[in-house]
Design a binder for these strands. Sequence first.
DNA 1: TTTTGAGTTGTTCGA
DNA 2: GTCGAACAACTCAAA
Length: 476
Amino acid sequence: MPRLVWFRQDLRIADNPALAAAAEGPLLCVYVLDDAAAGRWAHGGAQRWWLHHSLAALERALAARGAALHLARGSAREIIPRLAAAIGAGEVHAGRLTEPWARARDEAVHRALEAEGRRLVLHTSSLLHEPHRIRTGQGRPYSVYTPFARALFALGEPPPPLPAPARLLPAPGAPEGLPLAALGLIPAPPIPEWWREFPAHWTPGEAGAAERLARFARAALPAYGARRNTPGVEGTSGLSPHLRFGELSPRQVWHAARAAGARGEDAFLKEILWREFAHHLLWHRPDMPEQPLQQGFARFPWRPDAALLRAWRRGRTGYPIVDAGMRQLWRMGWMHNRVRMIAGSLLVKHLLQPWQEGAAWFWDTLLDGDLASNSASWQWVAGCGADAAPYFRVFNPVLQGEKFDTDGAYVRRWVPELARLPDRFLHKPWEAPEAVLRAAGVALGRDYPRPVIQHGEGRARALAAYAALRGAAEAA
DNA sequence: TTTTGAGTTGTTCGA
DNA sequence: GTCGAACAACTCAAA
């Protein structure tokens, strides 16, 4: 009996359990762009560029094995049952998702299929472990990372990845899908060619993902622990967008890291588990993208300010390490993890802008924008997360810059107007003597902004705001 | 049920 | 320049 494979966030053919389950017989491969179901969490601008190219790559990979990718746009709730009926499929196979809107939709699709005697079969595809399977000794979901990670390590090695099916047999009777261009994924003006630099940095698709993984395992993994916090070098894996779209699976990444020498509770494997943890949290707290996990934070005295938010988004805060990060984000669709924390901390703590604003900007501009990781990380930075940084931990953007971008390679690359400043003043140009600034060709306030807020003042204000919150909690 | 140890990523201050 | 303590309590997870 024919089967339908519904691709969502696992745009690959290797180690794809949904595809493997369907590949024994005739099948129809489908992708549905369903923006209405996702609502405000439909793919952000940068992700749409990635998705377009990833779907193109998947089309080619399937075609090489004799199958087409049926593309559709609209309500999956209607399209999937209709296509299943058209080919007489008894089963629809897909990878399980953790986004609340996707879970609600899967539930609806399942009911619609069931009414016609078919069923939706969900597989463990984008995570090492299903979030509802992992429980504490008391049977509750984890809310602290370290015991969660220990529990996952204690489960032993994940199963080995599945091979890609060698040959696929198309189901007869499949209706024609849309051409890729008809999905309208490539952003339209008024921001033409916002993504023009993306291709220089990224190769969406399964082959690009495999190449990146191999490169990381060979070059950066051995020194990952030492170099992952240096944004001026390629010390991290850069796999996040590939993982977000499922061009490779966490199982493949895990085993590749092991094969390349990652031992025990290796730092890189722990990062993979942070991703798992974020999905675990989202599964059990579906309001996480909107609401602080710690209830008291609902009354936090944010000071929304459109001008401050704009300066942060554009990389014009006057703090070089933050501005470098925000500009890297805009041009690459990606920001180094260390810098995400520094930039996030400045927005939330010094500037007292709601973390949801930062999360929304990241959602629109990150190629790796993942609802679970993005929401959990912003809550962590803001101090309202499940396992958050203590409130008094306010990053000093100057110290962080000096510590992690000591030679200034990162700032000089992304904030070229400061490139000629000596290292000593690169992370605090406002302290440079006039003659030094002049020699470097920098006029503060003209070529590069003065800090939007003094660190000491911002820190004191943040501590006061958090103290007020605690006071309010005690009074209540 | 109670106890115990511990918790991603930091900064500042004073000796 | 370096080093240790303070910063705050609170809640989680497991024994």
